[in-house]
Computed example of a mutant assay.
Amino acid sequence: METDLELAQRAALTGAAEALRHFAVIADLPQETKKDGSVVTVADRAVETVIREVLTAARPGDAILGEEHGETATGNGRRWIIDPIDGTALFVRGDNRWLVLIALEVDGVVTTGVQVVPAQGVAWWAQRGQGSYRGRVLNDRLVEAERIRVAGAPAGMGEARLGVVPIDWGREVAASLIAVADERPWPVHPPLLVAQGDLDVAVQTGGEIWDFAASSVIIPEAGGVFRGLAGQTGPDRGPFVFASSPELLDEALGILRGQNAQIAH
């Protein structure tokens, strides 16, 4: 029988293939605006549907929570968490940095996470206690797997390489860090760049549990740390900060909290 990680990878790759089918005709894809102001398309729903089909067939007793189709509840303590297209605003613009995200939570702890960037043919994954990895997607398979680690932490935020996501809204949340750190452009999701040593700090200025679940195992398994601006230590509603060391995380959070305290007054 497939392991949980193997199943998560297969489901994510199935979703990635479905997403690419829609991405190829993105100019003709109808768009809607959800109540929270975010964009959704038929692709988001179709991708979540095929992922759910894979997971349900293999683990019929497990619960599933997805951004587009809600939650199916069970009592076995296992829940799959899906973001079918993370970065739909990028997707509809034809930008290739959007992702497919899948995580497995067991008794309230995320144990497995997979993130695929389908349009770039690359993926990241981790299982608790077994390290974080990156590989290429080739013919719906993951190949050339290599273990990844965070970089050695710089002396402080003044020397830190910073990534902020999203790129077009919510940046005011990270304004105080942007002012002191070396903000870099990012070819893929900034928390993943922290995990593989190409950034020191990443700020995700907003999101829900499905946006953070996979990262919440990939980042620690690569040696990094994360925490919500409100003190959350597990995936939840954002903002969240990811860093290559506890010291850098504390410094970044201190700067952000000082900024937000000033705004509040």
Rank of each mutant, 00 (worst) to 15 (best):
P187F: 06
I85D: 09
E67G: 14
A63Y: 00
A261E: 12
R93Q: 13
Q115Y: 06
V165L: 09
V40Q: 07
A151P: 12
G66D: 07
G152D: 04
R59Q: 13
N139H: 13
Q232A: 15
I263Y: 07
T233M: 08
G228K: 15
T41N: 14
G135N: 06
A24H: 08
R161Y: 03
V201H: 03
R149V: 05
T14I: 09
A174L: 05
W124D: 13
T111Y: 13
P118D: 04
E146P: 02
V116S: 10
V54S: 06
I178E: 05
A222M: 04
G75D: 14
E251D: 02
V39N: 03
P235Y: 14
R141K: 15
P84Q: 08
V25M: 07
V137E: 09
A195R: 14
L13A: 09
S38C: 06
A153D: 07
S38W: 02
T14L: 04
Q9H: 06
L29A: 07
W98P: 05
R97Y: 00
A151C: 14
L55P: 07
Q204D: 11
D4T: 12
E6N: 12
G108L: 00
G66Y: 10
S216D: 05
P246L: 03
K35D: 10
P166D: 12
V100I: 01
F226T: 01
V54I: 11
L55Y: 07
L162G: 04
R52K: 09
G238P: 13
H189N: 08
V54Q: 06
T88N: 09
D168V: 11
Q115T: 14
I219Y: 05
R128Y: 00
T3W: 11
P246K: 10
G163R: 11
R141F: 02
V143D: 02
L193N: 06
T14E: 14
R227V: 00
T74E: 04
Q232H: 15
T41G: 09
Q31A: 14
E159T: 10
V42I: 03
L138M: 13
G238C: 01
D86A: 07
V100Q: 11
R149M: 08
V47L: 12
G77K: 03
K35C: 01
